[in-house]
């Protein structure tokens, strides 16, 4: 038993590895995420961030290593089982259920995920969350008629609807214009204030600086830094991973 239970990791990744044939996309990465933490997962393109997220959510099965949620092993289990354990996510390329209304999109998360509500309960959860992400009163709207940021909001609401223990955001802020970005950052800040545990893969550095407690940096599949945001971003190995070596 840990002396300070609030600091016990909700997610532990231990030596996670994913190889596609000869290409090692995630190379023995380990880190922990504590309850209530907002961790930024950053790195240059192709560094394995999204693959790492896919390993956690069960979209991909790790080649080796273990991933546990609150002490229970989730690596190797199918995505739906991991979702029920309490991991919810958004996708790099937004995935909306096109033939369903906004409300039904959000209810999908409430009905089948970690929370598993049904009927009016699910409906209430969905309505409240639409309100929360700024889509109040739009429940009956068909998703085809919505804008890009509305789709992003909807996807976030769907992920939140299961009341997840861990929320994975895959470049949720990408593609937003400056004013939308401000709204988006504000929204994530509120989630953090609620005590949600979040891992966000992000390229928008301002968002990482202003939101995250901590960040993990990956490069070519390897974790190269882990720690306080301001400190990590000035480390020479991180700078050279982003900008290339001086002699390159």
């Amino acid at each position: 038993m840990s002396a300070t239970p609030s600091l016990a990791p909700i997610l532990s990744i231990d030596g996670a590895r994913k190889a596609f044939g000869g290409l090692v996309a995630v190379n023995d990465v380990s880190f922990d995420v504590r309850e209530g933490e907002l961790v930024g997962l950053i790195g240059p393109n192709g560094s394995g961030k999204t693959t790492m997220l896919n390993l956690i959510s069960g979209a991909l099965r790790p080649t080796s290593g273990t991933i546990s949620l609150a002490g229970a092993r989730i690596s190797g289990r199918p995505a739906h089982a991991i979702a029920r354990q309490g991991v919810a996510r958004t996708f790099q390329l937004v995935r909306i259920l096109p033939s369903m209304t906004a409300l039904e999109n959000v209810m999908a998360g409430a009905v089948f995920g970690h929370a598993r509500t049904w009927g009016d309960d699910a409906r209430h959860v969905a309505v409240a969350l639409l309100d929360r992400v700024g889509l109040a009163g739009r429940g009956d709207a068909m998703t085809g008629a919505m804008t890009y940021i509305d789709h992003k909001r909807l996807e976030l609401a769907r992920a939140l609807a299961s009341n997840p223990r861990l929320l994975l955001l895959d470049e949720w802020l990408a593609g937003l214009n400056p004013s939308e970005l401000k709204l988006g950052i504000e929204l994530i800040r509120e989630l953090r204030a609620d005590g949600r545990t979040i891992i966000m893969v992000e390229h928008v550095m301002d968002a990482i600086r202003s939101l995250c407690d901590r960040c993990v940096v990956m490069s070519s599949g390897v974790k190269i830094a882990d720690g306080d945001v301001a400190d990590v971003l000035t480390r020479p190995e991180v700078v050279s991973a982003y900008l290339g070596d001086d002699d390159a």
Binding site: A59, P78, A79, H80, A83, A108, F112, G113, S162
Partner: peptide, 13 residues
Amino acid sequence: GNDETVARHVGID
């Protein structure tokens, strides 16, 4: 029927 990937990730077997 809409999106099987989403279905799996919201917890549907």
